[in-house]
Simulated scan of single mutants.
Amino acid sequence: MNQLIEKLKKRWEIETIGQLILILFIFSITGMTALYVRKFAFGWLGIDEHTALWVEVIAWVGTVFPAYQVLFLFYGFVLGQFEFVWRFEKKSLQRITGMLKRSSGS
């Protein structure tokens, strides 16, 4: 367990176990809040168990994914870890755009 903690601290460029716990908490509350956003957005859009999967996927990408990103930044700011969260977001978005560019053949 100690090796995992040290590996995460090194990978995420953080110094204390307190920061690590706080960052894991930020991931957790962001995910839980995103579930509420999904429930609200899907209800508002009229998506239910009879909706085609492709419609759900498009709705998820259009609502929940961006909401998660904003919530992650918000919670990181409120809990004093904005620098880490911003750096993490930039890396994640660079990976996503890189995958999209490779899949489009550019």
Results as ranks from 00 to 15, higher is better:
Trp86Thr: 00
Leu45Ala: 10
Ala59Leu: 08
Met32Ala: 08
Ala52Asn: 09
Leu22Ile: 03
Trp54Glu: 03
Trp60Gln: 08
Thr16Gly: 08
Arg38Thr: 07
Ile23Asp: 02
Gly98Tyr: 11
Lys9Thr: 03
Gln3Ile: 13
Ile29Ser: 07
Lys9Asp: 07
Phe82Glu: 01
Gly98Ile: 14
Glu49Ile: 11
Arg95Ser: 15
Pro66Ala: 08
Gly18Trp: 09
Arg95Met: 15
Val78Lys: 13
Val37Ala: 04
Val78Leu: 12
Lys9Gly: 01
Phe72Arg: 05
Leu53Tyr: 13
Leu73Arg: 01
Thr16Glu: 07
Glu15Arg: 09
Trp12Pro: 03
Gly80Pro: 03
Thr30Phe: 05
Phe42Lys: 03
Glu6Met: 05
Ile21Leu: 11
Thr63Asp: 13
Glu13Thr: 09
Thr30His: 01
Arg11Lys: 12
Ser103Arg: 13
Gly105Val: 09
Ile96His: 05
Gly18Lys: 10
Leu45Trp: 00
Trp12Ile: 05
Glu49Asn: 12
Ala41Pro: 11
Ser106Pro: 06
Thr63Arg: 02
Gly62Glu: 07
Trp60Glu: 06
Met99Tyr: 13
Val78Asp: 14
Asn2Ser: 15
Thr97Ala: 02
Phe82Pro: 02
Leu79Thr: 11
Ile14Met: 09
Gly76Gln: 02
Ile21Lys: 10
Ala59Met: 04
Phe84Ala: 01
Ile21Asn: 08
Ser104Met: 15
Trp54Asn: 08
Gln94Ala: 13
Glu49His: 06
Ser92Leu: 15
Trp54Ala: 00
Leu79Cys: 04
Glu13Gly: 01
Ser92Lys: 13
Phe77Thr: 04
Glu49Ala: 11
Leu71His: 01
Met1Asp: 12
Ile26Pro: 02
Phe74Glu: 01
Asp48Trp: 04
Ser103Pro: 07
Ser92His: 14
Gly80Ala: 06
Phe82Trp: 05
Arg11Ala: 15
Thr33Val: 10
Gly46Val: 12
Phe82Lys: 00
Lys91Ala: 05
Leu24Lys: 14
Ser103Val: 10
Gly31Lys: 14
Leu53Ile: 10
Glu6Leu: 06
Val37Leu: 13
Ala67Gly: 08
Phe40Ala: 11
Ala59Phe: 08
Phe88Gln: 00
Ser28Thr: 14
Met1Glu: 14
Leu79Phe: 14
Trp44Asn: 15
Leu4Glu: 11
Thr16His: 04
Leu8Ser: 04
Asp48Val: 01
Leu8Lys: 04
Met32Phe: 13
Thr51Cys: 03
Gln81Gly: 06
Ile58Ala: 07
Leu35Gly: 07
Glu49Gln: 12
Trp12His: 06
Ile47His: 01
Lys90Trp: 06
Ala52Trp: 06
Ala34Val: 03
Phe77Ala: 02
Phe65Met: 13
Trp44Ser: 15
Ser103Cys: 04
Ile17Gly: 11
Lys10Asp: 08
Ile23Ala: 03
Trp44Thr: 15
Gly46Asp: 14
Gly43Lys: 05
Thr97Arg: 08
